[in-house]
Amino acid sequence: MQTADSRLTPFTISRRARVGVALVLAWSAASMSPATVLPEERADVMYHRYDGGDVTVSGPSVLVRKNVGEKLSIAANYYTDFVSSASIDVQTSASPYDETRNQYSLSADLLNGKSVYSLGYIRSSESDYQADTAFFGVSQSLFGDLTTISFGYRYGDNDIGRNVAGVLDPDFNEQMKTQGFSAGVSQVLTRNMILALNYEVVTDEGFLRSPYRSVRYITGPTTQALQSEAYPRTRTSNAAALRGKYFLPWRAAAELGYRYYRDTWGVRGHTADLGYTHPIGKWTLDGSVRYYRQDRADFYRDLYPRRDFANFLSRDKELATYDNLT
């Protein structure tokens, strides 16, 4: 699938087109469990590669999910990704990055009447970043199983280091804590249509900037200099998403989704996507189109007029005005 930023008209490729190409090869062996709301048993091996928005992400992933008795399901996942970015930062300060991240996770789902309780732990390690996340969730089906409500909470502890010339800097150690609360409702509307509404608030506290990146400022008519970024120490974001799925008469499914995002740094984001799933014998064909647009954070600038221009300084491309069609 090849796509281009062109304001939702996929046939014109603008000159500064940001092209996102996602390739996901997945092998999956899933055995359907009998009528239960526990997740089905499965073993998945996947290789993925994404190329777009100046970022390449690739790597393998393995998931195994096994039921223990009729009420308990346990899953283990190993996931590696290799992120490399040759961004515009390269022109001014040395921040093209190559990073290998390993992630292990273990989770359990327990079925109790019409409720499913989930509990899990995720560890993610990079050479200069370690994240430990624990999560808990509960979902409950109501009204003759037409409605399902769910709640979730997660807590993450992040240990941030800094590599200098490929070696971890012993004098640099920062912390960041993340908490997330989520709630969702899914509702069967007709015999062919289901709707889901999800809401999540995430709040971060601690060291939120990059230990490497710098911002540029003007020192003279033709000269510029660099200084470290300065970020607030908290960030709270709210996101709400509505998804609908429709069963088509020839056994295929169409999906439509929209998400609105805003955070305390002044970023607003809109995500819209359209998907189509078509089974052919043992194979399932999935296609989707996704459009994303965000406004920049209040304090983001590509070039500041002078040193220490504001309390907060950032040149992170994640916080810039951006749009992308995948």
Binding site: I122, E126, Y129, D132, S182, A241
Partner: peptide, 17 residues
Amino acid sequence: REAARGATGGSGGGCGC
């Protein structure tokens, strides 16, 4: 790549960014 996060129904840790 994007600032937006959350409400996707999944959860993760770390960023690699």
